[in-house]
Computed example of a mutant assay.
Amino acid sequence: MLIFNYKADLEAHLAPYISKGSSIGFVPTMGALHNGHLSLLRQSVKDNNVTVISIFVNPTQFNNPEDLEKYPRTVDADIEQIATVSPDIIVFTPSVDEMYGGNTQSASFSFDGLEHQMEGSHRPGHFDGVGTIVKKLFEYVNPTRAYFGEKDFQQLQIVKKLVEKQNMPVQVIGCPITREPNGLAMSSRNQRLTGQDREKAAFIYKVLNEAKEKFKNEDVMQVKNYVEQAFAQHPEFELEYFEIADEDTLVPATVKENKKYRGFVAVMLSNVRLIDNISLN
């Protein structure tokens, strides 16, 4: 398996593939890989001539220094998992200095308002950090297709908007959420939960499914009130937000219209922040 730490070496290796028009699939990650990441890799290997995965914990997308410090870093185990998908996958594991050249700051982006909703309002600067690192990585890898999980649905829409506004020749592909057997959305942050907390966290997906069922016959505010009350009855969870939003604009809904809606939730459990979402129609 080829592992590159420097962008110049990665670009030199990929140049022949690009010159002969081979398709390059790309899966950007922050490591601590799980089956959700591996499902993205499998899709990329199936779709493309060559697949690249990056492992980089991006400091500019963390607005909480403690969260950055505690983010799991398991590169050796990650590489072992990647090899189970294909030994031909190319791994890019740069340092912070390699990616930022001693100036660890975000560029500033407009994503036509997508960045102000939900995660954007609760994590100031987060999506500038995401835009900064994804733009850099796309410029180094030159992917034909890039794969993102729908668990971070807002991020997926942000990346699509980035590609559109920057005129980047990348097809951004959203892939379904991979879940634990109990329904908990797979996330690198789950590693910070105890076994008991992982079982408790199944409640998040249970409530989302109940919200989906209620959305068929009840209005937006009734469904929101139901979810808020459900979490209020389980004080081990601290509900940060539950929103019903238009999938395209991510603008929270107040009344139902003829649009595609999704329910988005963020909660704290044992000081670990968990997000999830579900299509409502």
Rank of each mutant, 00 (worst) to 15 (best):
L10N: 01
L14S: 06
Y17R: 04
Y17D: 04
K20C: 12
S22V: 03
S23T: 15
G25S: 10
F26R: 03
H37S: 03
L38H: 11
Q43R: 13
N48E: 06
I53G: 01
I55W: 08
T60H: 09
N63L: 04
N64C: 10
V75K: 00
D76C: 01
D76S: 06
E80W: 06
Q81E: 14
T84R: 13
V85G: 03
I89K: 11
V91H: 00
S95N: 13
V96L: 06
S106R: 02
A107W: 10
L114S: 12
Q117T: 12
H122D: 13
H126T: 09
K135F: 01
V141I: 15
N142M: 12
T144C: 05
Y147E: 11
F148S: 00
D152Q: 09
Q154P: 01
Q154M: 11
K160W: 01
Q166F: 12
I173F: 07
T178E: 03
L184W: 07
A185N: 08
L193A: 09
T194P: 02
G195R: 07
G195Q: 13
E199H: 09
K200F: 05
F203W: 07
Y205I: 08
K206R: 15
E210R: 11
N217V: 11
V220K: 11
V227I: 04
A230M: 14
F231R: 00
A232V: 07
H234F: 01
H234Q: 15
E236D: 14
F237L: 00
F242W: 15
F242Y: 13
T249F: 05
L250P: 00
V251S: 14
E257I: 09
V267D: 02
M268K: 14
L269F: 10
N271E: 10
